[in-house]
């Protein structure tokens, strides 16, 4: 019975772990994409180059702005022309057509709109280009992912706890005589309970260690295949998060064992 429980717990833990690691990786991909989602603040033409450069401090002082990069109109033109193979089309274009500009990177795209408004208030900022829809899309994706992962986690946690309870109830049933004698001679509730709680926690620990090792192997196998087939995705190397993952596995397993076994030995109500 406890073997079966451990086995089921291992399965649940691996699904939980996969969910969490998947979330973590998607999170990381989103982060990379987010970082590229910068805003462009165009500087009013009326300002001289020196004045334009002087705005940097003020822009940096705004909440949620992590980094700003000044791009001169000459650079802007070069970047623009680079995008086209056939430069001859724009031969006559002069850099004065372009405005000086800042690339603005934000810390959290959730507050992008607010930041955009703040930036607009800075003297010398003529116009701001921001892909708010894209930013909102990322935020939604992040939220959905979080909710899904959390629900899977909660459901599997509850399943493991319920399973552990029935296992420990069976164990307590086998030792019913012993327990009734302990009650009769005046053992405290916690004294009777703790061996079961300890056993539950040990089963949980055992299950989490097994699940951890399997997860490790499975993850690296999958990571190799993914980076082989989809080279643009960078998978977080397992070894870089090994300690937090191990701790998380053990904590979840032990907690499942604890919560599951605490309810196994009930006080008989006085009739």
């Amino acid at each position: 019975m406890s073997f079966l429980t451990a086995f089921t717990m291992i399965c649940c833990l691996i699904i939980m772990g996969t969910c969490a690691l998947l979330t973590l990786n998607v999170q990381q991909i989103i982060n990379v994409l987010e970082d590229e989602n910068q805003m462009v603040a165009f500087v009013d033409e009326a300002l001289s180059d020196e004045e334009a450069r002087a705005m940097e401090k003020e822009l940096l002082a705004i909440d949620n702005v992590s980094e700003v990069r000044f791009v001169t109109r000459e650079e802007a033109m070069v970047n623009f022309l680079d995008r086209y193979d056939d430069n001859s089309l724009f031969e006559d274009v002069d850099s004065s057509v372009f405005r000086n500009r800042y690339l603005i990177y934000v810390e959290d795209i959730v507050f992008m709109e607010q930041t955009q408004n703040d930036l607009a208030g800075v003297y010398g900022v003529a116009k701001i280009n921001a892909l708010l829809k894209v930013a909102k899309g990322f935020v939604t994706l992040r939220n959905i992912l979080g909710v899904v992962a959390l629900s899977v986690f909660v459901v599997l946690f509850l399943i493991s706890v319920i399973l552990m309870t029935s296992t420990m109830k069976a164990a307590a049933h086998i030792r019913a005589t012993e327990i009734s004698i302990m009650r009769m001679v005046g053992a405290t509730k916690s004294f009777i309970r703790w061996p079961f709680v300890l056993e539950g926690m040990l089963i949980g620990l055992f299950a989490s260690l097994c699940a951890f090792l399997l997860q490790w192997g499975g993850y690296n196998l999958l990571a190799e295949n993914i980076s082989g087939a989809l080279s643009f995705i960078t998978v977080i190397p397992f070894e870089s998060i090994i300690i937090p993952v191990l701790v998380a596995f053990c904590a979840v397993g032990v907690l499942e064992g604890m919560f599951g076994s605490v309810g196994a030995v009930k006080d008989r109500p006085r009739k």
């Binding site: 009650r183 009769m184 001679v185 005046g186 053992a187 405290t188 509730k189 006080d267 006085r270």
Partner: peptide, 9 residues
């Protein structure tokens, strides 16, 4: 109920 063990002793 939590003090019953004292009687039982």
């Amino acid at each position: 109920r939590s003090k019953l063990h004292k009687l039982r002793r």
